[in-house]
Amino acid sequence: MTRGFRGIGVDDIATAAGVSHGTYYNYFTNKRDILDAVIDHCFTQLRLRVLGPEGDDPPESLDAFCARYGRVIDRLYDLVATEPGLVNFFLLEASAIDDRVLQRCMHNARGYGEQSVDMIRHGIAAGYLDLDLDPHIAGEVLLSVLVSALLSALRAGADGLTQDRVRDQSIGFLRTALAPG
């Protein structure tokens, strides 16, 4: 995170991990292999941290749905406050490494989108979301709202958007856009 992918070598990684080169090569064939493993691991950890203890349990009302997304936005702000290098890497630096990294990040991010699609489908079936919603488009919108909140968190209010304002406006938008007509 501090020196960038191109600025480090296998020696640096092995030293930082406190292992020998031999041990490193027991698990990874090159620097690229560890990058892929780190990306996958970090996305798994981010998912657990950002989505929180609710996990895959679908909300049972529009209020619960909106409250959940409010908590996710708060967790995104907390993530930026505690792990700014990690967030900056995934949002801004990873795509500059090469297309494979970008594709791997996008593949991992789609998991969030798929979970959102499932939540939308559940909300439609439960009757608290608009029956005419396309779950895939609505899921992409939810993901976009979260990415937008993450970018606002990275700007740390420099654009006049406080955490409370971002959360409240995002929830208001979702409530208006997704509720039955």
Rank of each mutant, 00 (worst) to 15 (best):
Y25S: 12
P53S: 11
D130G: 09
D159G: 14
T82L: 14
R3F: 15
G123H: 04
P58I: 05
M106K: 07
D130Y: 03
A179V: 07
C66E: 02
D98N: 12
G9K: 15
I73L: 11
T2W: 12
H41G: 01
A177C: 14
D40F: 05
R68V: 05
M119E: 06
R75W: 10
T23Q: 09
V19N: 03
I34D: 02
L142M: 13
S170V: 10
L174A: 06
I137S: 14
R104W: 00
A17Y: 03
R49C: 03
F5Q: 02
G52I: 05
S170D: 06
F65W: 15
D57T: 15
T162L: 08
T44G: 10
N88F: 05
R75P: 10
G172D: 14
T23S: 05
S95Y: 01
R71P: 00
A158L: 11
A17M: 14
G18V: 09
V87S: 08
A17D: 04
S20E: 09
A16C: 01
L151I: 06
I13E: 00
A126W: 07
L131R: 10
G52C: 04
G139F: 06
M106D: 13
L150N: 11
L131A: 12
A67R: 03
L151E: 09
R165H: 12
A125H: 03
D164W: 00
A126D: 06
G172W: 12
A67K: 06
M106F: 05
L76T: 15
Y25W: 12
P180H: 12
L161Q: 09
I171R: 13
G9Y: 09
A67Q: 06
A109N: 03
L143G: 00
D159A: 15
D57W: 08
M106T: 13
T82C: 07
D40W: 09
Y128A: 03
A138T: 02
R68H: 13
V147A: 10
A138P: 07
S116P: 00
D40T: 14
V166Y: 07
L46S: 14
R155W: 05
Y25Q: 04
V87M: 14
R32N: 05
A67H: 05
D36H: 11
V141K: 04
L178M: 15
R165L: 15
T23G: 08
D159K: 13
I8S: 07
D164T: 13
G52P: 07
R71D: 08
V101G: 00
D11S: 11
D40M: 05
D36E: 11
P180R: 14
R155G: 11
V166G: 01
D132Y: 05
M119I: 01
E60W: 03
I124M: 14
T23I: 12
A156L: 15
G172Q: 13
A64E: 13
A14C: 02
F43V: 00
A177N: 11
A177E: 13
R6W: 09
A153I: 13
Q163K: 14
M119D: 04
L174V: 13
Y128Q: 01
P58M: 10
V141F: 10
A96D: 12
E54P: 00
L133I: 03
R32K: 07
I120N: 00
T44A: 14
A149G: 11
T44E: 10
G127A: 04
V87I: 12
